[in-house]
Nucleic acid binder design. Sequence first.
DNA 1: TCAGGCGGATTGTCGGACGATACGCCCTCC
DNA 2: GGAGGGCGTATCGTCCGACAATCCGCCTGA
Lengths: 245, 245
Amino acid sequence: MFPPLRVEPTYRKLALAIETRILERSLRDGEPLPTEAELSTQFDVHRSTVREALRELESAGLVTRRRGTKRLVVTRPGAARIADTVGRALSLEDVTVLEVWEALHLVAPAAAANGARRRTAADLAAIEAAYQRFTEDSVDTARALVHMLAFFRAVTRTSGNRVLMLTLEPLLKLMEPTLAQMVAGVPQARARITTAQRRILEALTARDTEAARTWMSRYLRDFRRGYELASISLEQRVAWRSSNR
Amino acid sequence: MFPPLRVEPTYRKLALAIETRILERSLRDGEPLPTEAELSTQFDVHRSTVREALRELESAGLVTRRRGTKRLVVTRPGAARIADTVGRALSLEDVTVLEVWEALHLVAPAAAANGARRRTAADLAAIEAAYQRFTEDSVDTARALVHMLAFFRAVTRTSGNRVLMLTLEPLLKLMEPTLAQMVAGVPQARARITTAQRRILEALTARDTEAARTWMSRYLRDFRRGYELASISLEQRVAWRSSNR
DNA sequence: TCAGGCGGATTGTCGGACGATACGCCCTCC
DNA sequence: GGAGGGCGTATCGTCCGACAATCCGCCTGA
């Protein structure tokens, strides 16, 4: 019995080689990649092959082109890109709004509880800012949504855990469309959101772990109630529109 | 003030066009993609350009090549690919083992609690199988690890929530190396793992939400204790080796 | 000193070519 | 009639080379 021998095409080997260099930090964040011609010489392959490898790295978010520039620079795939990848995958899996809501309902309260212990003054300021913006600028649904998501992000950031932040991001993006429907369709939604956000903020300020958890949980449960009031089915599949970043 | 006008290169537009078709299901899972030549004709661009677009889709996991075949087929990016993407990103963010552990400690108990309500007989069988395999085949650390991860996956699956499953995957992969160190370095680890797994299994069988949560939580806390016993720093960055899938 | 101009470097896209190989068809042989 | 094997072709992987667009750095002149 022989192991199934596997011939990787050159472009993949190339991509892997460069990726490895990035992961091991010998190509650092912000550093410009060698030019295509140079890579083509160094690896002794044709430039077309190099380009195929580069497209792979590019779509992985490991290299990016700064706006209006030619050279590719090494970057870390940010939250937005991860959210894109995960969101797309979940959408293709026909995941329902309910599942996303559940996941959010599971992550966010815990993050808030965690955050109640560690939050710094700066954290609070960020949350308060998001809260303020929501209260002052929530007439337009789209803008209200932006502020709501900002609030979530700010609260999650207090946990000091980047894994949570990265996990949260796709969930928010997936909830966004239906959440917007809900806010637009339920008159009392804005008031309830304001209240919940205030309570959460207070709990974090007071470093009250349980209150933070509870209010965040209630906040999210309110979403669910809002969905029912607005006749938004929780069983529908999450939507995903490719961000043409 | 004009919006910064943005000229997308052809290969990106192309990739986006195909991606859209996949997301809207007009290209379905398992279906073969048109040949490069055909795409090149249809879109009226050079084949090299088509290939660059395909590399993007390929690295996004939206199209794949089945082992030893030429044609690309449409696929959904599975858990493994997501784990890859997320894991790489987290590793590049210099995320620590502690952060991953925290996230796991947050997700898994909640998933178990959720699962205690919904678990089916089949779920239990899967968990029991993983448990059995661990008890019978945990001498070799690598194999023990495989069974431990399988246990986690099986438990999480009971929650019936694919978002959780997808979230869990990268966490497990990231924990794996240090977890292996821990299991190898702490003599009593295997016994404690067996106990915890059994308790979790029992809780799920009895549909005891709180017991499931508690034991999963304890299980994970035990990991942390094990890390200390094995002198594994929780502050170290998570490692990531690119899987050359 | 700095705006503007100029030339080289780099990317994006193209036309075309060629070997390797996976696939499907057909043919033979049992 | 079905299984196995051989052959032609479609398709991929890689390469060569070319050229326009444009970004960048340098130099010049006011």
